[in-house]
Design a protein around this nucleic acid. Structure first.
Length: 242
DNA sequence: GCGACAG
DNA sequence: ATCTTGTCGC
């Protein structure tokens, strides 16, 4: 898919190369105003999930496209490269977007909805990685993080589907959602072109018995987020211990 | 100054 | 994020 859907010079500043932290912060402040905080994706047939795994200064980004509502994998692109930017809370996008953007570029289909592993509006400057990618790709985007970056919230009821507001002062910046009973809730926030309530509904409808919605869960796997169980060695072919 | 801090 | 085995529970 094409990376830049809009012929706008400013949009290019969303694609970070070698920015200094202070410039990265200035960029976020300036572009946060362009995020569209409302919308309900229509006729969704494909949903993409994006995630990245890191190891020794290198990162492996993965974008997986699933059919909806079947949630079958239609396409998967994995890209590995050097990570130029360090991890700094609040500036995650500048570390991960370059690799993910390359993966999106190799995608043959343009998804109808995107789910990103990380915060959207629930960010210091209301411009988390989900907003960053959403604006870059001009796609309805949802931010779904496994832990909190900013904001406070009360307890979340135990039943699956329960949600509690995540606030920064009096401002509601996201929803803490229990995707299934017995698991730690996830942090859902607007990435781009979708409302908060709609984002939470989508996250829940994309869950299939696991804590994380399938797009995020499968992208995490594709990126090699956790060691794959080693295939059992055929008897007689086991490597000698000496 | 101290504590917090997506992945 | 990553380093890592077993173990408690449905």
């Amino acid at each position: 898919m094409r990376l830049y859907n809009r012929v706008d010079m400013e949009i290019r500043q969303l694609h970070p190369w070698n920015l200094e932290p202070r410039d990265a912060i200035a960029t976020q402040k300036r572009l946060a105003a362009q995020v569209v905080l409302e919308g309900s994706p229509q006729d969704v047939r494909t949903v993409a999930g994006a995630d990245i795994s890191t190891a020794g200064g290198r990162g492996r980004g993965a974008v997986v496209v699933l059919s909806y509502p079947d949630l079958q994998v239609l396409e998967s692109q994995v890209v590995e490269s050097e990570l130029a930017f360090p991890y700094i809370p609040g500036l995650l996008a500048f570390r991960e977007v370059p690799v993910l953007a390359e993966a999106f570029q190799r995608l043959s289909v343009r998804p109808d909805l995107l789910l990103v592993d990380g915060q959207g509006l629930a960010h210091q400057r209301r411009f988390g990685i989900a907003c960053h990618l959403g604006l870059l790709l001009d796609l309805p985007t949802i931010g779904c993080a496994k832990s909190r970056l900013v904001g406070e919230h009360g307890p979340v009821d135990e039943e699956a589907g329960s949600r509690t507001e995540l606030r920064d002062g009096s401002e509601v910046i996201g929803l803490v959602v229990r995707t299934r009973a017995g698991v730690t809730p996830v942090y859902v926030s607007v990435g781009h072109r979708i409302g908060l309530a709609e984002a939470a509904e989508w996250v829940l409808s994309l869950c299939r018995g696991y804590r994380l919605p399938d797009p995020a869960r499968l992208a995490h796997q594709a990126a090699g987020g956790q060691a794959m169980p080693v295939a059992a060695q055929p008897a007689g072919e086991q490597m000698s211990l000496f």
